[in-house]
């Protein structure tokens, strides 16, 4: 650390102190299979306006009417599953009412819907008991997925200090001047 400071001060001599920037880069080793943050965020103005919503709910129920009134483009249970199997998917968001959860599971649509990211699940909050709230949230909100934001450091790999005009130095965490005559106060005055 001391000899590093010694070098960096030499590289930065004569530079206005407000201009010189010191940077510390920290490299942490993390698990590759770390957790992923996945959620929806509702912005003041919708970022996407091409949302087409499909709703899975029992046929001929008040729920179906409600879903249609909310603007769903495809509503139903067995009829909807059949159209999905035939490749007719007019929606890009799919939600499922809790009562139809078992029917959805039996329909075995994971292979078709899964790769498209349409499979309703509790985790993505697309299996719901309140259709109105979910539809409204889907229309105005956008999904995000963040892998790098989750930090579970396994170990601190390296810390590198660099300055505007100098090279980067890897820190070893101790203050050992290689030059025995060098005192910390030598490195504290005006450059």
């Amino acid at each position: 650390m001391a000899s590093l400071n010694h070098y960096l001060r030499a590289y930065e001599v004569g530079r206005p102190p407000a201009v010189v920037k010191y940077e510390v880069a920290v490299k942490v080793r993390t698990n590759k299979s770390g957790p992923v943050i996945r959620n929806r965020i509702r912005l003041p103005f919708p970022v996407k306006t091409d949302t087409r919503i499909g709703v899975i709910c029992s046929e001929d129920s008040p729920l179906m009417v409600e879903a249609q009134q909310l603007g769903a483009v495809a509503v139903g249970e067995e009829s909807l599953f059949e159209s999905i199997r035939q490749g007719n998917i007019p929606f890009n968001k799919l939600i499922c009412h809790v009562d139809s959860q078992d029917a959805l599971r039996k329909a075995n649509l994971g292979k078709i819907l899964g790769p498209k990211g349409l499979m309703p699940s509790q985790k993505t909050k697309t299996i719901t008991s309140d259709l109105k709230a979910t539809v409204q949230e889907l229309i105005g909100a956008d999904e995000y997925k963040e892998r790098a934001g989750v930090n579970h450091p396994k170990a601190l790999d390296e810390v590198v200090l660099s300055s505007t005009n100098g090279p980067g130095f890897s820190l070893n965490g101790s203050f050992h001047p290689t030059d025995p005559a060098l005192k910390p106060e030598h490195l504290q005055s005006v450059m």
Binding site: A10, V13, G14, R15, S189, V190, M191
Partner: peptide
């Protein structure tokens, strides 16, 4: 001078203020 000689002087005389 400033780019080459002065950093070397600063390296060998770290406690002496050198103002440009």
């Amino acid at each position: 001078f400033w780019r080459d000689a002065l950093p070397r002087l600063k390296y060998w005389n770290p406690a002496i203020p050198m103002v440009v």
